[in-house]
Design a protein around this nucleic acid. Structure first.
Lengths: 156, 156
DNA sequence: TATTGTTATACTCTATAACTATA
DNA sequence: TATAGTTATAGAGTATAACAATA
């Protein structure tokens, strides 16, 4: 007996995602990976990745921040910070100096090249976010950021 | 000269994320990984992962769907579907049958165990989403899903 | 003792190229 | 020739345990 819907969904357009579509986690997963893929496409030629950009801009907004503190606020485990910071140092984008008051810690600073690099990257990121979010009004975009921020605050 | 803000941000609470906080991609990254980690905590004992649950529920909502079609709608590459589907078959949660009309393709169906499993998982997922989203009203939650869905439609 | 950064390591996730069998 | 599924493999991303130097 025909019900009006097909039982055999081999055509992607006909596929239903009834349950998944009601789950916030699923939509976050999809949109997040959409943004990640676009970021890689848009900034891969600069050798820039989402994680690295996060570290760079955290250093820019908090000059002299410790490696560990930067990792903590970004949700990056300490062992994983090592090679990431090494990478940025090796490419001359940041400087790493032993802290005066705590010789275990490193203070991180942008170099001039790093400051220039982040400006270029930021321009491209904004262009690409504008494209990915072209269907949203400025208000809707602000609403989205506000909602996500509240989730982060409650959950982190 | 003191400006009222500190130049040395070693305390996580004092760290500013000025630039990052304005980027939708960053917030999606953080919230998505928050949900992913919580999912793993909540459903790890069932051997359930986000990807696997996505496949299971896609099969539930589209009985007899082809392996490739399921992967396509979920954004999973064909090669990566193989071991995921194998896993679900090995655990007795789905059945894989050669399609009558195309002997290259597999039709996927939930087993009874799979149907039961997905109900248990779904209950827990909803509980945990309720917890993660406890600061949002029902309306705000709907708004969030609607906004994310529109981004997926525009970008995918 | 506790903390900063490090090393080693392992596991998941994702991406690509090349193969097979069917169409 | 094109497509469904497969194999092999490599690169990110992330997690834990154990260590050295310093606090």
């Amino acid at each position: 007996m025909e019900t009006g819907t097909t039982d055999q969904a081999t055509d992607a357009a006909a596929v239903r995602l009834n349950v998944l579509d009601t789950l916030v986690g699923y939509h976050l997963r999809r949109t997040s990976s959409l943004f990640a893929a676009d970021f890689a496409d848009a900034l891969g030629d600069l050798g820039m990745r989402q994680v690295l950009f996060g570290i760079l801009s955290t250093i820019r907004d908090n000059p002299g921040i410790n490696q560990g503190a930067a990792g903590k606020v970004l949700g990056i485990q300490r062992p994983n910070m090592v090679s990431l910071v090494n990478d940025l140092v090796d490419r001359g984008l940041i400087e790493r100096r032993v802290a005066r008051d705590d010789r275990r810690a490193f203070e991180l600073q942008l170099t001039q090249a790093g400051a220039a690099h982040i400006e270029t990257a930021l321009e491209r990121i904004r262009e690409h976010e504008d494209l990915l979010l072209r269907d949203l009004t400025a208000d809707e975009r602000q609403t989205l950021i506000a909602l996500l921020t509240r989730i982060e605050r409650a959950g982190g």
